[in-house]
Design a protein around this nucleic acid. Structure first.
Lengths: 195, 195
DNA sequence: AGTCGTCAATACGCTGCCGTATGGTAGCCC
DNA sequence: GGGCTACCATACGGCAGCGTATTGACGACT
């Protein structure tokens, strides 16, 4: 029973391969040996390579939206804490796969469309949290944009720094965005204290 | 005299092709007809396809750092205004080519190294401006990171919005990052006013 | 035991692209 | 005008990867 495959195991392997080698590293003749079979098997489960790519996009769209949103919502009910958790989550799990899909979407329409939907959903979620935190809708949208783009930017820049410091900085910046909403901020913000 | 080519015209065309189709759309047999020649010409100017790619990276590193930094420095001597100009510049010229190179760097070591150097230089520039604006070195680094990653994120997210609104929002957020440096901010920041 | 459905191996043809080899042309220099 | 240089065209060999065709193995059901 262990060795017969189903379509989902192919897409699962495809996600892994996509994460490490990019779309055009995602070849069925490279994926097949990873699963211990030959490509003869692949073309039983899928019509095309394109069909596999579509399946990959569908799967990613799910994990990149529903999964993270659920995880964050489960973590806390308070908006600010949710955003903190989201930030931590991005640094922990938002890694090579996200980068690969976005790189893919840079020159492929199908992928671009999925990325666009994912961005929209996640952005709306961040907006909602900021509104819940007390911002008016308009200001929430502007702040959410800064917050969201910064998180995406973190995934794509290669400013080398150990991860813990990056998270710490990102959280500090998050507090900046959470404060100043009309009520005066509590903490002093004179000069940074270093690490 | 018009039709004989030199190496630089090849790299120039390569940059254009890279911007619209990505690295693996950058094929010499597709580039050749764009220049009105055949690939027989290419292999006179270059040893390899790899050599062309290297040339492309060298060229991009230059335009992505020196060029923009010079442009911004020429625009103003005041740090805050420089950052505003940088923001505008990103939305105006920082387009498909940057995305293409970064997508390329996601799974290619050579490209990744160049992207990394570019990020480092630009980040240091932003840091310097923030310090010049009055922040202490440590706080400047944290803020610069938020600012820089947000700009990169803007280039890579596909949150559809007309460009002018995006610039406006980004500039508003920039003011947020510039303020709060110890002296109290001047403008009111209660509720956003919409477009 | 035979049959059918499910999954896989092998072998093949085709295409896109790389890199090479070879020959061609146009200007310049003597 | 013969040769040399710089640039280009054409033709070729080779490889990687796609998709197909054919055959095979193994379990379930009757």
């Amino acid at each position: 029973m262990g060795d017969r495959l189903s379509a989902s195991e192919w897409t699962e392997g495809a996600l892994k391969l996509l994460a490490e080698r990019g779309v055009d590293g995602l070849r069925v003749e490279r994926l097949a040996p990873m699963l211990g079979v030959t490509k003869g098997s692949f073309y039983w489960h899928f019509m095309d390579r394109a069909e596999l790519l579509d399946a990959v996009l569908v799967e990613w769209e799910h994990v990149a939206t529903d999964r993270v949103i659920e995880a964050v919502e489960r973590a806390s009910a308070e908006p600010a804490e949710r955003l903190r958790e989201l930030t931590r989550l991005v640094f922990r799990t938002g890694g090579p796969l996200d980068r690969a899909v976005r790189a893919w979407g840079a020159h492929d329409e199908r992928a671009a469309k999925v990325v666009s939907r994912v961005d929209a959903r996640r952005y709306r979620f961040v907006c909602a949290q900021l509104e819940g935190h007390g911002f008016g809708p308009a200001l929430a949208r502007v702040r959410a944009r800064l917050l969201y783009t910064a998180l995406i930017g973190e995934q794509h820049t290669s400013l080398r720094l150990n991860r813990s410091t990056r998270v710490e900085w990102a959280l500090r910046n998050l507090e900046l965005l959470l404060g100043d909403s009309g009520s005066a901020p509590k903490g002093d913000r004179r000069a940074g204290k270093g690490s």
